[in-house]
Design a protein around this nucleic acid. Structure first.
Lengths: 334, 334
DNA sequence: TCGGGCCGGATTAACGATAAACCGAGGAGG
DNA sequence: CCTCCTCGGTTTATCGTTAATCCGGCCCGA
């Protein structure tokens, strides 16, 4: 590996002069600069960022740590990346430990301080992992779980979104709306808030949110949702609406209903959550709760940059408003 | 920031002893170790990975650098991550510069050497950017473009896949199969190889791959594909099959056809490419060319690890076989 | 003519961790 | 009783870069 001192020797100058030429931080005489640049070129020198980072005490890099590269966080990543780059930093995306065998070591504290700042999704985390994270670190939490007040946190208006989604179907004549992917027993994930909204909408409409309408979906995969809905149909469980706790789950439901010849939205209406890019294109178009991705990204970046400047402003817990996007999976109100 | 020397002072030992306790590389006496661990605990010390990386000359980190977090590369990332972690390293995902304004600086050579190895998608790169990358670097290229022989490269059997896909529809009665997202003029991306396969299938069936059947889709987005297909329908262009150069494009086509009341697969058959996770759930189920993601990931990781061990084995250009996955968007052969 | 700037560049001293060499004390073996 | 080894540590030097300081001319104004 060719180092700065190789370049310095080749150009017959000191290392500092090479450094100054490359960073432009101090003036260097024309002829000297040319010699240095020529040496850089001929040796193929590239600065060692690891050394620079150690020396500088920062990495100019921000990490987004998520449980999966897909779906909601894929969308968020796409929005956050340009904002971070606009601030002169790089964004890297990491998964909370990929291997299921040892989810203990999923969150490595030493790795956190490699980054100038971190967006951390709390979805895949255990509560005690969060306890070990020092509040001094420039971290913004993302996700729908309850988190300690000592962190900045960006979340969605889950209750409101679920209420909107469910009310939307009830207004259009649905009477038995499933909570697909709903919380069974006690749960602290996004599904519990969304189920709360689902229940609220029922009560507001003078209906009882029946226990039997809550359908768990393991891992919230399309696959699991598909099978869950197929089973409901096989068992003859009556329903005329589906509130899917997220669009991934909704996909499975749509496939199951379509394959069984159940017409959307005439026989069953369906609303998802997250408004993924593809949802608009899944026939008949999935009505979905849009999280306001740009607002999520902008807020998260604002909070993180505030924290990275060393501000000791009080931590903020921001709830991003959501909006229902109407598509073909629900009926038109006439 | 609390450093190892703080811990050493607190515990009344040398820094090396602290280091040895934490890494376990040398034996340390019981009482001493306890004092060190107590000091670590009370000061809240975490090792500085940047310093460790500089000293060690490696980062134990591998990067996957892709144009977007979505679709094909999202799937690949999910497969590569566990394999890399199994090798004791971490995987981070980066986007080739998010901002469209300056795609020049998208590939920063200094950043490359921060990683022990790099998977680099060539999709978003200009040819000259690749020229600047030294062949000595442990890099494996991913993607469907032609690349210099001095790099390891993993690609898909694009021609074969497209041929399979198109022949599949022709065998089932289609006579006018669009190449949706096909190459107009000269192109070196995935679309040109896939269009070649589309044309081959036509000729093998004794048909002429008509110029008018090639429909460009800017940026290969669902949105653009949607509009392209809507325009075809409006213009009354006759077709009874669609080969979409990838599933994202296919989604747009499916939505356009469905919304216009064109029945899949009776009136128009459709095949995509990439077999994304969601494709199975998009009604009526998208027949798609499956890239063999596991093989892609395994091959890429094998090549990179070989390169990272310093092997000077000849560079390999591997073409991963593909397989057609039949679903509802094409007819059943009886 | 002399002191004070300024300019272009070299020297020094870190950033935080660790490999390698070193060293004192205690025990085993001849 | 002396040598040699092992154990449990310490010291030294280094990874590659850069902030801070220093230094020798040269020009300029008084």
């Amino acid at each position: 590996m060719v180092t700065m001192s190789d370049v310095a020797r080749e150009a017959g100058v000191s290392m500092m002069t090479v450094s100054n030429v490359l960073t432009g931080r101090k003036r260097v005489g024309e002829p000297t600069r040319d010699r240095v640049l020529a040496a850089v070129e001929s040796l193929g020198y590239e600065v060692n960022l690891t050394a620079r980072h150690l020396r500088a005490g920062r990495t100019d890099t921000v990490a987004l740590i998520v449980p999966s590269f897909h779906d909601y966080f894929g969308e968020v990543a796409d929005r956050i990346a340009p904002l971070i780059e606009a601030g002169g930093r790089h964004l890297v995306v990491e998964r909370t430990s990929a291997d299921a065998r040892s989810e203990m070591e999923s969150l490595s504290l030493p790795r956190l301080q490699m980054y100038d700042g971190v967006f951390l999704s709390v979805a895949g985390l255990h509560a005690d992992e969060l306890d070990r994270v020092p509040s001094s670190a420039p971290i913004v939490l993302l996700g729908e779980r309850e988190v300690p007040g000592r962190f900045d946190h960006v979340r969605l208006a889950n209750v409101e979104g679920a209420r909107l989604a469910t009310a939307h179907m009830l207004e259009r004549g649905a009477r038995r709306v499933l909570a697909l992917g709903g919380a069974v027993g006690s749960s602290a994930g996004m599904e519990s808030d969304r189920q709360t909204g689902w229940a609220q909408a029922h009560r507001a409409a003078g209906l009882a949110p029946g226990e039997r309408l809550v359908v768990p979906v393991p891992d919230f995969t399309s696959e699991a949702a598909f099978h869950a809905v197929v089973r409901l149909l096989d068992d003859g469980v009556p329903f005329d609406g589906v509130f899917a706790v997220n669009d991934t789950v909704a996909f499975g439901a749509v496939a199951a209903l379509t394959e069984r010849g159940v017409h959307l939205p005439d026989e069953v209406q369906l609303v998802g959550f997250d408004n993924l890019g593809v949802s608009r294109f899944v026939p008949p178009g999935i009505t979905s709760v849009d999280p306001g991705y740009d607002a999520v990204a902008a807020t998260a970046v604002r909070l993180l940059e505030q924290r990275m400047t060393g501000s000791d402003a009080p931590r903020e817990h921001v709830t991003i408003p959501v909006q229902l996007v109407e598509r073909g999976s629900t009926r038109r109100l006439r």
